[in-house]
């Protein structure tokens, strides 16, 4: 893990830098600019078929390809880890088609593409966090028609979601959303934070880094600019409560980080370890 992951100096012959042609990148950058100007608003874009499958990060890949420059240092994580197979695959893709330097260090990266996590290490100004988004529409489970949800966003009518959370509380005593908990961005748009655990939601609020969201199959881009208010949807008497397993990491002892549960035998044995592998390794002095 400490060896350079992709010490490729040049990119794949026959393809433009970062795979997409410059006209496509320009189209995506325009969508990104609009997204940054209207925080939390989903901007349609002409997503392309990529050589990786829809649903496997094509939105994030296109956003990364559009903002990536030759001097960038790229980190790719899936489930918080750099060594999960899909993260390896995406990092290898950019190693091949862009030849950029890659890293597993959150601090060293200028662009971090992620699926399902926000790194534990606080991000700083100038960094870009690119989220892979499966379903950009936060209301889709309540209203599948895009024409209708578009109208609800225009009206700022998020009663459907408030009622859903209320019904959870009535039925279960608490909100039953454990991940992809909807957030209000800049007090205007309801937004899917992508399927990150609720634990990560507070990290989006007033984050110094630029947060970009790409949904390839659904052909939508949205963004949270640096230092933007991001509030998890809740009620005054039932405030939002991020959850993590109430344990310490078996490897680094952290009681702050988000933990993966690992089954060790068939007798109920289990341990908990940091989901963020870089954070854990750094704490262990690696």
């Amino acid at each position: 893990m400490n060896a350079p992951l992709n010490p490729v100096a040049e990119h794949l012959a026959g393809y433009n830098f970062a795979y997409l042609d410059e006209a496509t990148k320009r189209m995506i950058r325009r969508a990104l600019l609009k997204a940054v100007a209207i925080p939390g608003h989903q901007v349609p874009f002409g997503a392309r078929e990529m050589p990786l499958p829809y649903g496997w990060g094509t939105g994030g890949i296109q956003v990364t390809a559009a903002v990536l420059g030759p001097r960038d240092v790229l980190k790719v994580i899936d489930q918080g880890a750099d060594d999960t197979t899909n993260a390896v695959s995406i990092r290898r893709f950019f190693g091949r088609v862009a030849g950029v330097r890659t890293t597993d260090r959150t601090r060293e990266a200028t662009i971090i593409q992620t699926r399902h996590r926000i790194p534990e290490t606080a991000l700083r100004e100038g960094q870009v966090l690119v989220y892979q988004v499966p379903m950009p529409e936060p209301l889709f489970k309540l209203e599948p028609r895009v024409s209708e949800t578009t109208r609800l966003h225009a009206l700022g009518d998020y009663g459907l979601m408030q009622v859903k959370l209320y019904e959870d509380i009535v039925q279960h005593g608490e909100v039953a959303t454990a991940y992809n908990h909807p957030v209000m961005v800049n007090g205007r748009y309801l937004m899917s934070p992508s399927p990150i655990p609720s634990f990560d939601n507070p990290k989006m609020h007033m984050n110094p880094a630029l947060q970009l969201f790409g949904a390839g199959r659904e052909k939508r881009i949205y963004a949270v600019p640096p230092y933007t208010e991001v509030r998890s949807l809740d009620f005054e008497d039932h405030p939002f409560r991020p959850i993590r397993a109430p344990h310490a990491c078996e490897l680094c002892g952290s009681t702050e980080s988000y933990l993966d549960e690992v089954i060790t035998d068939d007798q109920g044995g289990r341990i908990f370890v940091c989901s963020d592998t870089d954070y854990c390794a750094e704490r262990r002095g690696e």
Partner: peptide
């Protein structure tokens, strides 16, 4: 079918972070 196969098949990718939060939520409830 390029879109639908991608999204259906993405379910085999790791989801253990979300599953973990579902576990904790379910245990609590």
């Amino acid at each position: 079918n390029v879109e639908s196969t991608g999204f259906v098949e993405h379910l085999k990718l790791p989801h253990y972070v979300d599953f973990q939060s579902e576990l904790e939520k379910l245990r609590g409830i």
